[in-house]
Design a protein around this nucleic acid. Structure first.
Lengths: 176, 176
DNA sequence: TGACATTGGTTTCATATGAAACATTATCCG
DNA sequence: CGGATAATGTTTCATATGAAACCAATGTCA
């Protein structure tokens, strides 16, 4: 709490209680700051994926999980990428069209399919990873390693809080 | 500058050297985490603005700057909201249509106009502010006040870094 | 078994977004 | 001045997004 005016605050003609505690500054508003920075960061990465590999962020995310995990159904990707199923569906279709990904029948559920990167997809994945890491490193050079960890930790706490504050819908943004 | 490998970086003979330093985990990737959390937060606020006031985030942002600042041209709003001019133009048009905002001729430049909230707009603004602050408080309850400040600080450093890493385009996201 | 509800994914449809093209008005400069 | 160039906003156009409707296949349970 700030001391709250000890000064004759501005003669308030209308004592309408606290119409004016402090002026609300958008630039100090956390959700605003978070959004702006996150989007700028996303832009930078999106540019990397797009310019050098012709991938969108959703596509990259799908590759990122398939690149390390074994064959898995789309639902697993939905969980691991925080993207809704529509986005995943489209990203998978795009990757398949590019010849980076293959579907094979799911042995236990004919509605689904197991997804996995093909050789070409895996090659691209392995090219991207070091570049993505490098860009991340360049970015987090602004923070020390422990501040980077701290940032992730703070974000996680916000996530947890949000989860508690009412089970929100599902997904969310673009970047990644 | 970082020490940067003291090793002869470039020519990696390519004994497939480090194809596998560590498995790349999307969930540990900072831009991903940042994006996911920021988008979730934005969703929560967007819901507030939309459900109770029928406003989008861009609209709210415009109101937020006009709510405290005096009459100003759209260009000033572009600067203060980190939104591109198209988004601002549309948000202003929408607010005008809702009767929350008025334009008056700019005395020195006929291409522009001075924007300001009308009485109805100001009333809405004053209703939103406490609610937005309350939601922010609920959210940041997950962090202490100093951690909240720290988070903002870390985000600012990332911003600064990004600015240095190549003058990126302009705008960015949705939330706020 | 045979509805009926559920789940995995895809498609539809309406909206949001932003790059690029525009129309206007200002500014610069020769 | 008078034309070229830049700046302010708006509009156009193609793409991205997601809620809701859908399709197909499973599960439930009476």
């Amino acid at each position: 709490m700030k001391p709250m005016s000890t000064v004759p605050v501005r003669d308030r003609p209308s004592p309408t209680s606290a119409p004016e505690a402090s002026p609300f500054r958008l630039e100090d508003f956390l959700p605003y700051r978070l959004s702006v920075t996150a989007n700028r960061v996303s832009r930078a990465f999106a540019r990397l994926y797009a310019e050098r590999f012709g991938l969108t962020i959703p596509e990259w995310r799908v590759m990122a999980v398939l690149g390390t995990g074994g064959p898995m159904p789309a639902s697993a990707i939905v969980e691991r990428t925080a993207m809704d199923k529509v986005k995943v569906s489209r990203a998978v279709a795009a990757l398949e069209a590019k010849g980076y990904l293959a579907r094979r029948p799911h042995p236990e559920d004919r509605r689904s399919a197991l997804l996995e990167l093909g050789p070409r997809g895996r090659a691209v994945f392995e090219q991207i990873v070091p570049l993505a890491r490098a860009l991340e490193a360049e970015l987090t050079a602004a923070l020390g390693p422990q501040d980077r960890a701290l940032l992730v930790e703070l974000l996680a706490r916000l996530d947890a809080r949000l989860a508690r504050l009412g089970a929100l819908p599902q997904e969310v943004g673009d970047p990644g």
